[in-house]
């Protein structure tokens, strides 16, 4: 064990040199929008509360058995970030929120910015909840990485702002869904959601509660940040419906607000083809919801930007200067 740190550095260099080792764990998982409809998938809910950004619900299927809540949430594409001080033990940032330039109106510090260096203050942090299907939200007393995700259950993060101890707000989604046994043929599913398309033309899911088709009792009215996405939701091609809104979550909060994709799953149904209607949550096969790519966005190319070279150059110059001064003052 003592020799291991010495081998760490070549390994580090290799990893950074360009070949990204993508997370192996997520290749088996599939992610869809909305509640799960089976009893094996885990529904992940992220409620931004006062942070702005609405509620995002995703379903993750086919993850490794025994995966922790954190792994499931990562598989759902939310890119949880820990702090420098605690490691990933404390989730500090989800999907890039709160961003490093985002001002959070803490009571004790109105200009507070979450830098994710130290543990977030207890007036502004992501509270971790979980619930069984049909159960009630429970504020977890273990970290997301320390407990296994409940198959068929719910894992959630809800942003707690300026709340006192114990008063953390639960996510604004009812943790229950109907369990539908997975059916092999897509044809069946065509029939089922037929009624669905019409109401969802407006893509405002809330008003009409499609009880027959939508296995999910959907959202409460708090999904406020919706306006933006619905506009593009109907338009995209059937095959590529959901991908546009959902995937690019991480980098810029504003730009990717399509996350309130509660509507999204419905949007495919907006498209007329009955075939696409088959984009019911269950028929994850046809709905090419590209499994939310675990490696999110910004990885343009693996070359470091100019700033890094300038920085390395500056540090090197300073160090050389210090060495030169030291040499001269030694009197040699």
């Amino acid at each position: 064990m003592r020799a291991r740190p010495a081998t760490l550095f070549p390994a580090l260099l290799l990893a950074l040199a360009g070949a990204w080792v993508t997370a192996p764990s997520a290749d088996a998982a599939t992610v869809t929008d909305g509640h799960c409809s089976t009893d094996t998938g885990v529904t992940v809910v992220v409620d931004h509360q006062e942070l702005g950004g609405g509620i995002v619900v995703k379903c993750v299927e086919g993850y490794e058995p025994g995966a922790s809540g954190l792994e499931v949430i990562r598989a759902a594409g939310f890119a949880p970030e820990g702090t420098v001080h605690d490691g990933s033990g404390f989730v500090c940032r989800l999907g890039g929120r709160p961003g490093v330039n985002e001002t959070i109106p803490l009571a004790s510090d109105p200009g507070y910015r979450e830098t994710c260096v130290d543990t977030p203050p207890n007036g502004a942090f992501w509270a971790y909840f979980h619930a069984d299907n049909g159960g009630a939200w429970t504020f977890s007393n273990l970290g997301a990485g320390n407990r296994e995700a409940i198959p068929g259950g719910y894992e959630a993060f809800s942003f707690s702002l300026n709340r006192s101890e114990g008063a953390n707000p639960a996510p604004g989604v009812q943790p229950s869904h109907e369990v539908v046994k997975p059916t092999p043929t897509p044809a069946q599913t065509i029939a089922a959601p037929a009624p669905a398309p019409e109401p969802t033309r407006t893509v405002e899911p809330r008003p009409k509660d499609e009880s027959p088709s939508a296995p999910r009792k959907t959202t409460r009215p708090t999904v406020s940040a919706n306006p933006v996405p619905p506009s593009d939701a109907p338009t995209p091609e059937p095959t590529t419906e959901t991908p546009t809104p959902t995937p690019t979550l991480a980098p810029t909060p504003e730009a990717s607000s399509p996350s309130p994709s509660v509507s999204a799953p419905e949007s495919p149904e907006v498209a007329d083809e009955p075939t696409t209607v088959s984009a019911t949550p269950t028929a994850s096969a046809t709905v090419v919801t590209t499994p939310a790519p675990p490696v999110d966005a910004v990885v343009e190319d693996n070359d470091p930007p100019v700033g890094t070279f300038i920085g390395l150059g500056a540090v090197g110059a300073l160090a050389l200067g210090g060495g030169a001064v030291w040499w001269r003052r030694r009197g040699l």
């Binding site: 420098v84 490093v100 990885v299 500056a314």
Partner: peptide
């Protein structure tokens, strides 16, 4: 505060 995940190269 260069982010670690996703990794961004720290720059000056």
């Amino acid at each position: 505060f260069p982010s670690i995940h996703p990794f961004t190269w720290p720059e000056l």
